[in-house]
Design a protein around this nucleic acid. Structure first.
Length: 697
DNA sequence: TCCCCTCGAGTTCA
DNA sequence: CTCGAGGGGA
């Protein structure tokens, strides 16, 4: 590391000296960035890193000429993901539902049978395979050649890691045999225990930081900027699924895996075909017993309905397939000491207790915090400061406190007393009670608009990715700007650039905000003066109005003025509850929001700065989109659940009874009163075959 | 009225 | 990811 003046040292007086220091700092910062973002192993503390950045930017401010040779300021703090191009998955990479017990696994099979309308004696084959604990990856082959590899990302969009994947020897550049024109092979990139141990030994010898577990090592290795660095890391791959395919080489799950193997792709030899729950559980037990000897990490077993035609019929529930499930091994547990309980104040005023723990490794990751959810949860488990607690990572991600080791409790400990006032603004914190007298589990700060904690959280929400998506205005910046008194309400964000230069100068000096980053931030803010209506509504942070409800409102009203006028109108509740998915509670919350005088004021100020763009009516893509459909009588080719799922997938609404709002009735044999009612209202009636023809593929 | 599903809100660590 | 609650169908 270069020796250099501390952050507080006087700046050099000559351009020459400044240039030398500027270059040295740039090199240091770049090195730390690499260590942090690429290797997932920071080499300096955040504070020390910030000092370097601050000094670097201060130099540039004092000697603007330095910027001519190219500044790294624009890149500083860039998310690691920005170093890889984004790739949209042609077919989303979805997640899997989880089960944790034999009973739940058995329910999965029962649910599949019920959905398909299979009798008890009808055969149903299911594959069982180890669930590899690595990184999901999608490999796109065109005419048999590997053209692109992408990480899973959020399931819809991942990162392009083609160059790195090409260095994995086990993954063929070219498929053997007769591969379809287009085939996206999906599977898991992982590292073996032996390679992980060897890698960590090398890291240690080189004085580099160690990886916490094979999965992190694999993730870090795959995301190397330099493909040659990936080549030096021994990665492996198992193919187990597929995305887009111009043709499928088989009609079953196991057939597909066999085809992958024939194409030269590595597949897992422990995959089995089972004809019932007993065999599935036997595979589970077998893998659980051999877990330590496999040589790579697995965290459970995946069951998949083998017949692809059945998979198709089963389809998806929200983001997970109905035809597959992960049977997880019991989560690892650990004990540690709870040092303190801190109360956080959320955007809606919710007081959330968070446990501060002595750092402990659970499932390969060091955990220091865990949410305690709410007051009742603490009381139920009688968690106290000083207690030794049992910790587990739920679904291997979020730490969860399971309970207290009472024998280890210090004699002087007392039950935890939940605060009755907001720790930030001192307002009373209450639990709301509904008309039935039921108490809400969360205690909320009643400070509302006067609570600074809530104000900051609302601002963070406003600028966040799913809301206004203002780049460069993250949580940290908002906190700093709020502290500095520069922004209080969303509208202030848009007048930031106009606000007097002296206060801006103040931020620059205080927060280490350089000329370049300030300019970029202003540009990002300007770019958001026009936003899609649904984002704007979501950004307002109205309670109970999340992403989906915001979209529902936007779709119904098309323009913001229409929504606002409707909320103020006398028939507001009626109008709002007519929207599918919006009930009385949500409607009342929306009405209350728009009628609150402070909100009206803040909204007027905001609308003077931002123009929400009206939402275009979406063109119907299917003949049944937007229609209300009723099924009656018995269906023969598909089950009722299936028909319903099919209709909803195409944008139709399925109702249980015929009314004037019904657009279409699908009647099978044995249809009774519903059919009569349909003809009474003059509603179109079709049979199952006609239905399948209309919605068919 | 109950049950199932979806949505919202809150959270962890990298 | 999980929990609780809202919405809507049975």
């Amino acid at each position: 590391m270069t020796t250099k003046p501390g952050p507080g040292a006087p700046l050099p007086t000559t351009l020459r000296a400044a240039r030398a220091e500027h270059a040295a700092l740039a090199a240091d910062i770049a090195r730390h960035d690499i260590a942090y973002h690429r290797n997932d192993a920071p080499t300096v503390s955040d504070a020390a890193y910030d000092d370097l950045k601050r000094r670097y930017l201060a130099l540039e401010d004092a000697f603007p000429k330095l910027r001519e040779s190219g500044s790294i300021a624009d890149k500083v703090g860039a998310a690691p993901s920005e170093k890889f191009a984004k790739v949209k998955h042609a077919v989303p990479m979805l997640s899997l539902g989880n089960v944790f017990s034999d009973e739940e696994a058995s329910e999965f099979v029962a649910r599949v049978r019920r959905f398909l309308g299979l009798g008890d004696d009808a055969a149903l084959e299911v594959t069982a395979e180890p669930k590899i604990d690595g990184l999901s990856c999608s490999l796109r082959y065109e005419k048999g050649r590997l053209v692109r590899a992408a990480t899973r990302g959020d399931g819809f969009e991942g990162e392009d890691v083609t160059a790195n994947v090409r260095t994995i020897g086990e993954i063929p550049q070219r498929l053997a045999g007769e591969a379809p024109d287009v085939l996206e092979v999906r599977g898991e990139v992982y590292m073996t225990h032996a390679d992980f141990a060897a890698l960590n030994a090398r890291q240690e010898a080189a004085g580099e930081r160690l990886f916490a577990n094979p999965r992190n090592a694999a993730a870090g290795s795959l995301r190397q900027i330099d493909p040659e660095a990936t080549r030096a890391r021994p990665l492996h791959f198992f193919a187990y699924a597929w995305g887009e395919a111009s043709a499928l080489p088989a009609a079953t799950q196991h057939g597909m895996i066999a085809a992958f193997a024939a194409f030269g792709l590595p597949t897992n030899s422990r995959t089995r075909i089972c004809s019932g729950i007993a065999e599935m559980l036997a595979v589970y037990r077998g893998l659980e017993a051999d877990r330590a000897r496999l040589g790579y990490d697995i965290d459970g077993v995946v069951y998949k309905v083998d017949d692809l035609a059945l998979q198709n019929r089963l389809g998806f529930v929200s983001r997970a397939p109905r035809w597959a499930v992960a049977h997880k091994f019991p989560a690892q547990q650990a004990t540690t000491v709870l040092r303190d309980i801190e109360i956080q104040v959320g955007r809606t005023g919710a007081l959330t207790p968070v446990a501060r723990l002595d750092p402990v490794t659970v499932g390969g990751v060091v955990v220091q915090n865990a949410t305690l959810h709410n007051e009742d949860e603490i009381a139920r488990k009688d968690v106290r400061v000083g207690d030794t607690v049992i910790l587990q990572r739920a679904g291997d991600v979020i730490p969860q406190i399971l309970g207290v080791v009472v024998e280890k409790r210090p004699p002087e400990s007392r039950p935890y007393v939940f605060p009755q006032v907001c720790p930030r603004c001192g307002s009373a914190a209450v639990r709301e009670v509904d008309e039935k007298g039921d108490e809400d589990v969360v205690r909320r700060c009643t400070g509302g608009l006067i609570c600074p904690a809530q104000a900051v959280e609302r601002l963070k929400h406003f600028a966040s990715r799913l809301a206004m998506d203002i780049e460069g205005l993250g949580d940290k910046q908002i906190e700093e700007f709020y502290e500095a008194g520069l922004i209080h309400t969303p509208a202030d964000i848009f007048t930031l650039a106009e606000s007097d230069r002296t206060s801006l100068k103040k931020i620059k000096d205080r927060e280490g905000f350089g000329e370049t980053s300030t300019r970029n931030l202003f540009a990002a803010i300007e770019a958001r003066r026009k936003v899609p209506l649904n984002r704007f509504i979501y950004a307002l942070g109205v309670r109970r109005i999340g992403e989906t409800n915001a979209r529902r409102l936007a779709r119904h009203f098309h323009a913001f003025d229409a929504l606002r006028a409707a909320a103020l109108a006398s028939n507001a509740l009626e109008e709002l509850t007519s929207i599918d998915g919006v009930g009385a509670t949500v409607a009342e919350t929306v009405v209350a929001f728009f009628r609150e005088p402070h909100n009206e004021e803040a909204l007027d100020a905001l609308l003077a700065q931002v123009q929400p763009e009206p939402m275009e009516a979406v063109a119907a893509t299917s003949p049944v989109a937007g229609k209300t459909v009723v099924f009656t009588g018995s269906l023969e080719k598909v089950t009722r659940d299936e028909a319903k799922a099919m209709a909803e997938r195409l944008g139709a609404k399925v109702a249980g009874s015929v009314s004037k709002k019904t657009d279409l009735v699908v009647a099978g044999p044995g249809a009774g009163s519903k059919l009569a009612k349909a003809s009474e209202f003059g509603i179109e009636v079709i049979d199952e075959d006609e239905w399948l023809r209309r919605v068919g593929p």
